[in-house]
Structures are given as structure tokens and as C-alpha cells.
Computed example of a mutant assay.
Amino acid sequence: MKFAVLVFPGSNCDIDLYHAFNDVLGVEAEYVAHTATSLEGFDGVLIPGGFSYGDYLRCGAIARFSNVMAEVKRFAAEGKPVFGTCNGFQILTEAKLLPGVLLKNENLKFVSRNVAVKVNHTNSMFTSLYESSETLVLPVAHGEGNYYCDDKTLASLKEHQQILFTYDNDNPNGSLHNIAGITNQRGNVLGMMPHPERAMEQLLGTDDGVKLFQAMINNVNRGVTCHEN
């Protein structure tokens, strides 16, 4: 089993994801450059946080045109797991793999701290090891994490149980409906602003991110892919 950690110019959380998989979970992860044209041999894709292409135009707006994104779209279409955190979430919305958009934080300030995050649904390939309504402690570090979508999209997200994570009375950015993380309707693409890859060891204050990645790994081991509804 092997996971691809994408690396764009300006990525700075790729090392955290690499450490989370290789060193903490004991599952092989490999850096893959934005120029790559193939993801053959990988079982999942991890898109890190940071400032891809300096966040010019909009966060993730240039990264979506990178060569590797065609392969990410293929992965998603095949029902394989694709995970994006922070800037990775922004890239997934810009690439239209997830609905909505990430706006500047409501207070127009960069926020970097731990927040309380609620698990809303446990019937996904990412949350199957958590308890329903479990509260996690996860770090955030972003200036544009204010999730927004129109009313029709929000209704669809709720109907299909795509809002996996919400801020639990601790919204750091003003996001709509306290949204912290969503999936696509198929359930195999997850984008979230908090950083579970920075919550892997109690030595650093919290290991609440471990179960998210372990759930991904377990589902890949079982050959689980998400099929079209």
C-alpha cells in the first residue's frame, strides 16, 4: 500500500503528511511533484497545506492547473480516497472536486491554534473509527478558511451527509454552518481546514487525527472504493 503526497511550489505541510504515514502509521508515503503525469501504483492521494504558487489569484487557483491534477481527478472518478487539508481543501474546491469556495477569514486575520471539531457522520471511509458526535482537538493555520456555498448546495451537503466535520462552538473563520470539512457526494474526496496530520502524537498535544488516516488505510486494505450513487 502506498500513498502519494503531492508537492506544489509553496507547499509546507507535505512533510507533516509524510511523517504521519511513514513514521507514525507505518504506511508508505512518497512525495509526488506537481509536474507528475501519473499516479500509477498509488492507493490514495494526500494534498497538503501551505501556499501553493504563493496563493496568487486565489488560494489553490493556480495549483488546480498542475499536471498532476488530471490524475487526481482520475483517482476521484475511480472512487479511490483523495484527502486535502487547508490549502489542499482550497485546491479541491478550485478543481471542482468539492463544491463551494474558501473565502478570507471573517476577521481578516490569519489564525493558528487548536480548535474543537465535531464528527458529524461516521459512515464514511474517513470517519469510520470515530464515535458519532465525538469532539476532536485539531490545529488550524489559515487566512482563507471561511467555507461558503449557496443555499442549494448547502441543502445537498446536508441531505447526502457530506458535512463530516463542523467547528464545535469554536468557529475560527466564520465558515457557513460552522463547516470544517466536507466530502464529495460519492464520499471518497475529503477536504478540511483543520490539520489532522499535525495531531498524530500526544507528545505534541493531541493524537485525534490518527483515526482519520487509519480509517482510510483500513478501507483501502479492505478494497473499499466509493461507487456512484
Results as ranks from 00 to 15, higher is better:
Val72Ala: 08
Ala95Asn: 03
Gly181Gln: 00
Gly181Lys: 00
Phe3Gln: 01
Leu176Tyr: 03
Lys152Ile: 13
Val7Phe: 08
Val7Ser: 09
Gly10Lys: 07
Met193Tyr: 07
Leu204Glu: 07
Ala77Asp: 14
Lys104Met: 15
Thr183Leu: 06
Glu106Arg: 09
Asp208Ala: 09
Thr166Lys: 05
Gln202Ile: 10
Ala63His: 04
Ser112Arg: 02
Ala29Arg: 02
Lys104Arg: 15
Asp23Pro: 08
Leu103Arg: 12
Glu131Cys: 10
Glu71Phe: 10
Val27Phe: 11
Glu197Gly: 04
Cys226Tyr: 09
Arg74Leu: 13
Asn169Thr: 06
Pro99Val: 12
Lys109Ala: 14
Gly209Glu: 04
Thr35Asp: 14
Ile91Tyr: 01
Ser11Phe: 08
Val72Ser: 08
Gly209Pro: 10
Tyr53Val: 13
Leu25Phe: 03
Asn123Trp: 03
Asn12Gln: 09
Gly79Cys: 05
Val27Cys: 13
Pro196His: 03
Gly54Thr: 08
Gln214Ala: 11
Ile47Tyr: 02
Lys152Glu: 15
Lys109Thr: 12
Leu57Arg: 11
Asp168Glu: 15
Arg64His: 05
Arg113Ile: 10
Phe165Ser: 09
Leu138Ile: 05
Ala77Gln: 13
Gly26Ala: 10
Asp16Pro: 10
Phe3Asn: 00
Glu197Lys: 01
Val24Asn: 11
Lys158Asp: 06
His195Cys: 07
Lys96Phe: 02
Cys226Val: 09
Ser133Thr: 05
Ala77Ser: 15
Gly223Lys: 05
His195Thr: 03
Gln162Val: 06
